[in-house]
Simulated assay, not measured.
Amino acid sequence: MPTTSITDGAERTLLENTLDRNREALIETARGLSEADARRRLVASLTTPISLLKHAAAAERIWFQRFWAGLSEAECDGYSARDKGTFAVEDDESLADVIAEFERASRRSREIAARFDLDDTKDIPGEGTISLRWTLLAMIEEFARHAGHGDILREQIDQPTS
């Protein structure tokens, strides 16, 4: 069931709602695709519908499990290095598997974020001092951008030009 858009209320509620809607929008760009179409390379980069979801799951782990919960890469529940490997999908992973992985990572991110206030900060090497507010905004931006990428890929898959 899609998350209902909230347009008024507490700042945290608005941020979390917008992030959840962008998570869902990204999933919807790939839902219903065949396994072959989910992996189709339509651009020069590693960007495919399934790899966008794989990357988003890794982004959840990097920002929430590693940075906010303070876990090492080995302690995270999946790939969490900050490199192109975030887009790597194994041959035996189905689209349903990767969607479920992203949904699990998102649930865990919500649980971790709930332990902090918006103004709480962390010092992150290479990033500086970040607040939870900034992290939520960065994730909203990240997933909105990738949902847009997914929309374009889906349009190319569903209505190819000749």
Rank of each mutant, 00 (worst) to 15 (best):
T47G: 11
V43A: 14
S80A: 15
A56M: 09
G32N: 08
L52C: 09
R104K: 15
H55V: 01
S72L: 08
W63H: 13
A57P: 13
R66K: 11
R82M: 14
A88Y: 10
T48N: 08
D37L: 03
W68A: 00
L42P: 04
A69D: 15
L71S: 13
A81G: 11
S34H: 13
A30F: 09
R82P: 05
S106G: 07
L46C: 03
H55G: 05
L53Y: 00
L71E: 15
D37S: 09
D91F: 01
E75H: 14
H55W: 08
W63A: 10
A56L: 11
L46D: 15
G85C: 12
R40W: 03
A96G: 00
D97N: 14
S94P: 02
E101I: 00
L71H: 14
A44G: 04
S34R: 10
A57Y: 05
L71D: 11
A30K: 03
F64V: 11
R31V: 04
V89P: 06
T48L: 01
L95P: 09
V43P: 14
G78Y: 05
A38H: 08
L95N: 02
R61M: 02
F102E: 01
A57K: 09
A69M: 12
R82A: 08
T48I: 07
L71G: 13
A58W: 09
A69G: 12
P49A: 00
Y79S: 14
F87C: 11
R40K: 15
S72I: 08
L42Q: 10
L33D: 00
G85D: 13
F87T: 09
L52M: 14
R66F: 06
A38D: 11
S34L: 07
R61A: 02
A81L: 15
K54P: 09
A100Q: 15
F87N: 05
I50G: 03
R104Q: 15
L52W: 05
K54Q: 12
F87D: 08
A58V: 14
A38Y: 04
D97C: 13
E60I: 02
F64H: 12
A44E: 14
E75P: 11
E103R: 02
P49L: 06
S106M: 07
V43K: 13
A96K: 05
S45C: 04
A88T: 10
A74Q: 06
E35R: 03
P49Q: 05
R61W: 05
S72K: 13
A105K: 10
E93I: 08
A58L: 13
C76P: 08
G78R: 07
W63G: 10
R61T: 01
E90R: 15
E103G: 02
E73I: 13
D83G: 09
S106I: 00
A74N: 07
